[in-house]
């Protein structure tokens, strides 16, 4: 056997590995994806479209869009600030701060919802004060937005921090020494360097914000037309045995996640340094 061949797997190994991988991915990833569309279209396209056009479904779509429209910009502001402080400066406790930013990823979504119930719920810390002032957070839209912000918290920051660390501080220092203030240096010098990484983080953040289930389910109260996001609406329809309805709304969410994957793939091809750290 020549040295070149020795780093190549024999054909039978390659065939075996590829068929095992194919079988596994079909069972775990591909069939579930296909089955969503198959179940949604079980009785044709019209019932599926009707389920999506249902007023409660439309209200859920609206709430999901609203939630993402607040959680994603919040995440951008936080992520950019955190990355600027961490990547462009040296200070004590930096690695602790980075670990703390990642913390929400290791907390169960249900616990993420629970913590807000314990603070803002009727029996929580601020419960009676909130009731006296007629402010509803839990079982209302603000709670849903808060829980979503918690679970998406690290997305943009963890994309930008390694990217900005890699780029160093030379360009910003040059800009500042030429008289630029911080904001000018950020928008003219840093932003062009990080825009693709930022977009990548926003993409992942948005997918999670629109798809979050566990945390939102704990704080939502499942009030139809009011506090139901799309994933919660899927759950309600499913538990009522309206499978066509549940899978139709689910199919819409599937299309969204396929779009996310396609955009993510394009970004990774065009900007290979983006997303190198995984997530």
């Amino acid at each position: 056997m020549s040295p070149q061949n020795s780093t190549q797997d024999p054909l039978w190994v390659k065939a075996l590995v590829l068929s095992l991988v194919a079988a596994f991915l079909v069972l775990v990833l591909i069939l579930p994806l296909v089955s969503v569309f198959a179940e949604a279209l079980r009785r044709g396209i019209d019932p599926a479209l009707e389920a999506i056009a249902n007023p409660d479904a439309l209200a859920a779509i609206k709430l999901t869009l609203l939630t993402a429209a607040i959680a994603v910009p919040f995440n951008i502001v936080f992520g950019v600030c955190a990355a600027w402080a961490v990547a462009k400066h040296d200070f004590a406790g930096k690695s602790l701060l980075i670990s703390l930013i990642d913390l929400p990823f290791s907390v169960s979504p249900v616990v993420a919802g629970l913590i807000y119930v314990l603070i803002f719920g009727a029996h929580g810390w601020f419960g009676s004060w909130l009731i006296d002032h007629d402010i509803r957070i839990i079982f209302a839209v603000p709670g849903i937005i808060l829980a979503t912000i918690f679970v998406t918290f690290p997305f943009v920051a963890r994309e930008l921090i390694p990217l900005m660390q890699e780029q160093g501080v030379d360009e910003e220092e040059a800009a500042v020494s030429l008289g630029a203030n911080g904001l000018t240096a950020f928008f003219r010098v840093t932003t062009p360097n990080i825009r693709w990484g930022l977009l990548y983080g926003v993409l992942l953040c948005n997918a999670r914000a629109m798809g979050e289930f566990g945390a939102v389910s704990v704080v939502s109260g499942h009030i139809r037309g009011l506090t139901n996001t799309m994933p919660l609406h899927v759950e309600i329809l499913y538990n009522e045995y309206d499978f066509v309805g549940a899978f139709s709304v689910a199919a819409l969410l599937c299309l969204l996640s396929i779009l996310t994957l396609v955009l993510k793939g394009i970004l990774e091809v065009l900007q290979p340094q983006v997303g190198a750290r995984g997530h």
Partner: peptide
């Protein structure tokens, strides 16, 4: 295949749940 590997990151968990249950 490369893009699909990330599907669990992008797909809402509730959607994955009902799809796997049906399957």
């Amino acid at each position: 295949v490369n893009a699909l590997v990330d599907l669990p990151f992008a797909l809402p968990t509730a959607v994955a749940g009902i799809a796997l249950a049906a399957l």
